[in-house]
Design a protein around this nucleic acid. Structure first.
Lengths: 350, 350
DNA sequence: CGAGGATCTGTTAGCGATACCATGAGCTGG
DNA sequence: CCAGCTCATGGTATCGCTAACAGATCCTCG
């Protein structure tokens, strides 16, 4: 019953009962008494097959536990149903959440996600990451590398490969989905000014990260809009450790009454440094973070911060990529609005 | 120069200068003046080709920016160079780090990683996740779903697909890489006992998570080994929020002088609840966490915790999978030892 | 009743690579 | 000087699927 083809495949020395190879379309066709083409149609355009035939085929599919060989399908159609994600450190909260958002959106559309993580962020690695994915015939690539070097890597793309960038700068040639960092930073800064602080200090992320410069820009513009002094920003590396080290410096400056920190983990370090120095939060110093990691509400004190909806960014990026794959071109830009979440680390200036 | 084949492909209405299709092996062969077979050999078994010929072929490859079509290769070899990872929420620190470890190990061996994340943890979804990956011809699958339902899903695996489990239980039919949860929990518990605490309370993770039960078991056995009273464990859901809620209850019990919390984020919630209730850490109550998230050293107070080397687990899992793919069978078990990191949230019993 | 159309199913020809075997060139040694 | 070998290369079939067309069937309506 398994088709003459199968029988003739058995080599002389082999027993016909050895581990049966997975069923292929022809096997299903034989079992259902139709041609392979009809099986193919049942799977790809069921409405073109008489319901009765379709049922017979589906029964055969189930009986043989048949699954189409995607390699063969890709070979002929040129489409794989896989999208690639190029990313840097996926243990960071932001990238991990974005990846998760992309993956969920992809799952809902029956796409699979392949990831190429990079050992370092620079043009050459990004290009290599994209190449690695391309050689697997992905239908498109989403780059999650919010670093200026990414922009470099995105200038010279293989022709014909749809690419979308997440969190990228403004002058890219590809569609971008991103949280509006400037708006979020400005919101945080204005919040602090509205509490009566004379000005707001800033602990930024590492240079050359798009997020860093966006937040610096938003903070600066909010200060300038109200004619406030713009202190020199301090620079951290996203870790709680760097927040702590720099926080110790901040704690020594009696002028400092309000700090906008570029992410929650550094803010955590700052909080600890301030506390150790005997400066109370928020009575003496107000602190605002960025991200709203799930634990932010349980910092001491609960952290006022700017929530980024990473999941939404991932979904938007995926949607942009689908559009790109479908042939919509141009350099669309999908901005996701961040949200200020006021908790207890900010208070009126004393 | 681009080969007759290419020319004949151009349809009547099309201009020959339209976007050129990507070069295929035959194009390279023609340009190098050899057969496609030789090109294939240069790519897969260079030592079988005379250096001089090889150089010509490689030059042609570079000139045409040729990249092999992996679908075609998969179709004939049956191997894809892609491995699948089935996982649940990749925004959690543990899974994200494990995934990262797997991805790095995979990259070093020129494997690509496809992920299938699950909307829920139960047998049916796990099976579907594996199927989704299998239909993409992955060479093997690593399941990162440390939940009892995973064990269910792993009992009925498609024949012939190498599968490795991360963090799984003991009675699985597949190789497992995991951190020794029991050992870590016991170590944490003994640490607290050694500081003079009469006994140790436990805030566990959600039921049916393998990690939860492993940590409960380790904690319990350490207490029993010294003949201590074993309090009823409290149950959280891994979030700082649940740690906080349950911490408030713990704070009301004057008996409680030492708590072993099943992860760092819940521990953070517990710390805050204790502080709000006026109980000092570590003077009144000692707290130990689990994971050693990067921020744990900046909790207030810095958290004593058990470090899990997730990256190493990921590497081990990948290695096990490679072995499986190479045909080594059996149910190997690779345990990674956790490490107690003593900071300031634990102190002698008063 | 039969032409013309709609609907369903089958046939053929690849997609781009590798496995397998065949071939020819060049060398060795008796 | 040629059998017998190695080494480098080429020819051909095939992996499993679908696009494009062709044929078969059934229905509709003048």
């Amino acid at each position: 019953m398994s088709g003459a083809r199968r029988m003739t495949k058995v080599r002389p020395g082999e027993s016909p009962t050895e581990r049966p190879k997975a069923a292929v379309m022809e096997d299903v066709a034989v079992l259902a008494g139709v041609s392979a083409m009809t099986v193919s149609r049942v799977l790809n355009a069921p409405e073109k097959v008489r319901p009765e035939t379709r049922a017979r085929v589906l029964a055969a599919v189930r009986e043989l536990d048949y699954r189409p060989n995607s390699a063969a399908r890709v070979l002929v159609t040129g489409r794989s149903g896989v999208l690639g994600v190029v990313c840097f450190d996926t243990t960071l909260y932001g990238p991990a959440s974005t990846l998760f958002g992309i993956e969920q959106a992809a799952r809902d559309s029956d796409y699979l996600v392949s990831i190429a993580s990079l050992p370092a962020l620079n043009r050459s690695w990004i290009t290599r990451g994209i190449d690695r994915l391309r050689s697997q015939s992905v239908d498109g690539v989403i780059v999650v590398a919010p670093h200026e070097s990414a922009a470099e890597g995105l200038r010279h793309l293989p022709q014909g490969l749809p690419v979308v960038d997440v969190g990228g700068g403004t002058d890219l040639l590809v569609p971008v989905a991103a949280v509006d960092q400037r708006a979020g930073a400005a919101r945080a800064t204005r919040h602090l000014l509205s509490l009566g602080h004379r000005t707001v200090w800033h602990l930024s992320g590492p240079p050359n990260w798009i997020d860093s410069s966006g937040r610096v820009a938003g903070w600066r513009s909010a200060l300038e809009a109200e004619g406030r002094e713009v202190p020199e920003p301090l620079v951290g590396d996203w870790t709680a450790h760097s927040g702590y080290e720099i926080g110790k410096r901040l704690a020594r400056e009696p002028d400092v009454t309000a700090v906008f920190v570029a992410n929650d983990h550094m803010a955590m370090g700052v909080l600890r440094a301030l506390r150790e120095a005997g400066r109370r939060v928020p009575e003496d110093v107000s602190v605002v973070g960025f991200d709203d990691v799930p634990e932010a509400a349980y910092f001491w004190p609960p952290l006022t911060t700017v929530r980024q909806n990473f999941g939404e960014v991932g979904r938007q990026a995926f949607q942009l990529l689908l559009d790109r794959i479908a042939g919509v071109d141009g350099k669309a830009r999908r901005m996701v609005e961040p949200e200020l979440v006021v908790r207890e680390s900010t208070g009126v200036s004393s």
